[in-house]
Amino acid sequence: MIESVDLTKRFDEVTAVDHVNAVIAEGSVFGLVGTNGAGKSTFLRLVTGILKPDEGRVLIDGEDVFTVPRIREQFFYVPDEQYFFSNVTPREMMAFFAKIYPHFDRGRFGRLAGAFELPENRKINTFSKGMKKQLSIILGLSAGTKYLLCDETFDGLDPVMRQAVKSLFAEDMTERGLTPVITSHNLRELEDICDHVGLLHKGGILFSRDLDDMKLNIHKLQCVLKPDMTANDLAAYLTDPLSVLRIEQRGSILTLTVRGSEYELLGRMEQLDTVFYEVVPLSLEEIFISETEVTGYDIKKLLF
């Protein structure tokens, strides 16, 4: 488990990470979203022990990552722009990491490099940006670490590669309990892979939730009411334990975002005499819009 406690980092007058408390559980995919400059990379660099926190600390499996270097054997950091030694080949980089990470799987590296069609003996400086990204992911997956910390990893990968990487993550999660931590400024990229999402804004986490919990507890209700009933009447009806987060009306069609169980919502709507109603699932974007509006933010200005 990775835990950040009151994690704070300042660069001169700028507070890049501001008292962030977060828990990244093992066996799940943690997605960290936020705009450029939100502090995602800084948070990840703090988690890796590259940066020393000004306040708070990062614990990986209970050990402070900055003061106990050996705990870094538990993760592999894939930065946005991976550094490779000058004039080396993938095989040479692999040899280096194999000496650093005790569980590095050379065989797997060879297989993955073959699968991704990366020439092992070609100079890395002749690779394209996407190839370098693939190489760093392959190295990370082959390192055999418990955590894989990826900073904007899916940028620069084509859709096919993105899917392939997601499959590999899923495979490693299943086989050896890998916990990927992925940062991105694109919510849609994380939608189909993340189990848990944290939203970082201006150095602070707005919220951090399980995606399933969010999806199960928030619903979009579309309905057409009879003339004797208004939207406010409906909102007043859908309370306790339900709560209406958002109301939108287009013509006669009323769209409500409602928090609560689908069963409860459907039960209530059964008892109401309406012209038409249906409950449809929300996209991750819609969930975020709803959640952040509640906390007073306009998510559209933060993401997308």
């Binding site: 590259i50 705990i71 930065p79 991976q82 550094y83 650093i100």
Partner: peptide, 14 residues
């Protein structure tokens, strides 16, 4: 910075 991040993310003490 890239090189520093690389070396300091490795499980090797300073």
């Amino acid at each position: 910075q890239r090189k520093t991040d690389f070396y300091h993310s490795l499980p090797v003490s300073r």
